[in-house]
Simulated assay, not measured.
Amino acid sequence: MGLINFLIVLSILVFIHELGHFLAARFFGVTVHTFSIGFGKRLISKEFKGTTWQFSLIPLGGYVRMKGQDDSKPNLNEAGDDSYNNKKPWQRIVILFAGPFANFALAAVLYFAIALMGSNALAPTIGKVLENSPASKAGIQINDEILRINGKEVKTWDDIGNFIKNSQGMIQLHIKRENTMRVININPHISDAQNIFGEEIKKRMIGISPAPKVVTIHHNPIEALVFAYDKTIESSKMIFLGVQKLIQGIIPSSEVGGVITIGKVISDASQSGIIALFSIMALISVNLGVLNLLPIPALDGGHIMFNLYEMITRRKPSDRVFMILTITGWVILAGLMLLGIFNDINRLMQG
């Protein structure tokens, strides 16, 4: 069942990505010969309005094959106004960007649905108070519930961290303790901490950690739109930073996951409920959008770079340069895939 869920989720994500390319291409009048979910041998196909829609043997991606566009034939020059290679560079860039954009849009839709159904988060309830911390000295206790900070309503534990981080000087906490309300003033101190990438940072803190208590936050449609936008932007920034830290060597290469890890995460999420599954789908969709925008020649981002070069220099890259860079891109992608699979197998062997 886990494998089936993995294939369904991956197929949906790939379909949305390729649908973005397809719709943009058709908008500019480009003929699309093939719309494929998967690579390799064709398993099922149906021709509709000049396009062959198909499922292929290897379900780890997909593609749309447009008239006048073929990475293996950079000198391909098919005549006609319906040919990709005859479109203006900015139009080709729109077609290329439409795939990743569709993934970001899908993530936003999923986050919007999560917000309407009820998003889960850690409750603003204190589970631990560090000794000699500002919170301890101010008399804060375990199981205290923080309701407001400097007059701003607190709904989740993340709100506490954000309010304290962006505050200056003394802060005022409204706390609920055993059905009584208390007002406590605390002066946060600057402490050593680690970010999500394991880097040492300085951070304003008061010395508390959360209780293992979850709260469900329900949003009206307007709030859900804001939630969806914020989560999509936040996820995109996190993945961009993750790629940057990986290149810098801050994140070890052993942390790179492959299809086995993705499959396990999707399988586990599907067993936890629809909200967990939507959350993982949204995150993977953003991941797919971000990675495809990287300036690697075999990806959408690489092709966008080629077209930007043509817009600036008024000439296309030479066929030889295009082919060398494209092959280099394929090698990089193959290397990353093999690294991910190697790490997945290594994790399985280590239990």
Rank of each mutant, 00 (worst) to 15 (best):
G301S: 10
A107S: 12
N195D: 15
N162W: 01
K264S: 14
L299E: 01
W90D: 07
E131Y: 04
I8N: 03
N346W: 04
I146N: 06
Q244W: 12
Q172H: 09
G249E: 07
F55E: 01
Q54M: 13
K155M: 03
I250A: 08
N120T: 12
N143K: 11
D158P: 01
S209T: 15
N103H: 07
K88C: 07
N86F: 02
P252L: 00
F227C: 09
A98P: 07
Q54P: 07
S72L: 07
E310D: 03
T156I: 12
A79V: 12
L3F: 14
L294G: 08
E200L: 13
I186K: 05
T180P: 05
K87V: 00
S119G: 09
S11P: 09
K203P: 06
E47M: 10
S267C: 00
E310V: 05
M238T: 15
G169Q: 12
P221V: 12
F306R: 10
A138C: 06
I37C: 12
V9L: 11
M66V: 09
N5R: 10
L339P: 10
A224Q: 11
I208T: 01
I284A: 01
G351A: 04
L225Q: 00
G29L: 01
I327E: 01
L294S: 06
F104W: 12
E234P: 02
I12C: 08
